[in-house]
Design a binder for these strands. Structure first.
Lengths: 245, 245
DNA sequence: CAGTGGTCTAGACCACAGG
DNA sequence: CTGTGGTCTAGACCACTGA
């Protein structure tokens, strides 16, 4: 097993988390102005650069809006559902942000040989073994996302049988492969549901669905997982916030 | 007319631009290691914080990958098409990144009264006037994106007739409204083409299309434009890079 | 081990918004 | 005018990687 190294959070992360909690708990209500950066510095006993790094991240997620010469304000438009881009593949989070209760069903976990196209995405040879995960995500007991993931089998540090199919992809990679995601390339398409997908999602076939292909890479630029997911966007809204510049 | 204030670029932006150019021009080829941060500091005669800010931005776009204890590398997987999220609404850029020649046709620019739902998105009263822009984007003379934008008419500083329908939304807002975008909320859906859309895009109706709704806000949290765009994703790929954490 | 990027500090000056 | 956020500097120490 991998050793779960305890890595204490950095000061910046702690400040970020405190501010995020205060916004969530309405200590800083929507639309209100946050304490000035220098006030936060003295409260947390940290330098201004640290506070600014934390605030920059919140602003990048659209949680706060900064106005030069004025102050930093809580964005009041995010009370409803929303998602930052990074959470695009944390489906549980996505479902709960939409106001539903999330659950996962593992449909298949097993090993097979990679096809030609699959192999090329994962930068392995066709026929090399891959671990396949097919999973279904539910929002309030209703199936909403169907996902297929492929991991090159040689990355796996444990037998296939030990994989818990209900963990997030990030957790699976960390626990079973000792790998961390550095970046991801994804492609968004609109497709009609095929029979496999429509049966799992309990939809009429030929329903238009969002289909997102993704490939995750580690810091060595090696592909570590590919994924293909099908959304029923009538139930689950795919909403993004983007800060500008 | 608005006054085009000349704002000299910050040092960070200049460093960022130089590094970006060098990567584009293969001074730093794909996969190669960049000079260390301290080397870049002495080359540009700036502090390390400045260099790091510039590199952090490049890393966030996935252009480079940083490895602690090792170095910063040019991501070799971005040679082909790709798009960062911010560019999602710079359609010309998107089309050219896909390797096509981009052109714009302005189909309609005019004023009308807002409907109920439109008014609620733009935080105005139903029946208040809005400026509507309908535009078609071409990739190599072939229509690929159809967009409808709505701007509250009271934001406009010039008569509707003066609007150049071939500018980007960002430019239109800056030139004619003196507004800058602070953030955007968007929603991605898979829809079947209706008759209006399918005729413009020259597609059979009932084709599945990507449909992206967006609303841009300024720093005062006021909605300044809404938009609805339809992609033919068989021609134009919607690809995103996301850095992780 | 030496060199890299990751984090953090304590200052400084600026542009800008508000009263 | 005062106070805000925006930018920048010159240091410091740490964690990590590769040879």
């Amino acid at each position: 097993m991998s050793l779960p190294i305890h890595r204490p959070k950095t000061i910046t992360q702690q400040v970020n988390a405190v501010l995020r909690d205060r916004i969530r708990d309405n200590v800083y209500p929507p639309g209100s102005r946050l304490p000035s950066e220098s006030l936060l510095c003295s409260e947390f006993r940290v330098s201004r650069a640290t506070v600014r790094t934390a605030l920059t991240r919140l602003a990048g997620e659209g949680l706060v809006i900064r106005k030069q010469g004025d102050g930093t304000y809580v964005n009041k438009r995010l009370e409803g559902v929303q998602t930052n881009l990074g959470g695009l593949w944390e489906f549980g989070e996505l479902i709960e942000k939409n106001g539903f209760q999330a659950s996962i069903q593992s449909i298949f976990v097993g090993q097979r040989d990679a096809g030609t196209e699959e192999a090329s995405v994962l930068a392995i040879q066709p026929g090399e073994p891959v671990v396949e995960l097919k999973r279904l995500f539910f929002a309030n007991q209703r199936p909403v996302i169907y996902v297929i993931n492929l991991i090159p089998a040689n990355l796996l540090a444990v037998p296939v049988e030990e994989i818990n199919g209900r963990l997030s992809i990030r957790e699976i990679l960390q626990l079973y492969c000792n790998e961390n995601i550095a970046y991801a390339l994804s492609e968004v398409c609109a497709n009609l549901a095929n029979s496999e997908v429509s049966s799992f999602l309990k939809l009429p076939s030929q329903t238009p669905l969002l289909n997102i292909h993704i490939c995750f890479y580690d810091a060595n630029n090696r592909p570590i997982v590919s994924g293909s997911s099908y959304y029923d966007d009538t139930i689950l809204k795919l909403r993004l916030v983007q800060a500008w510049q």
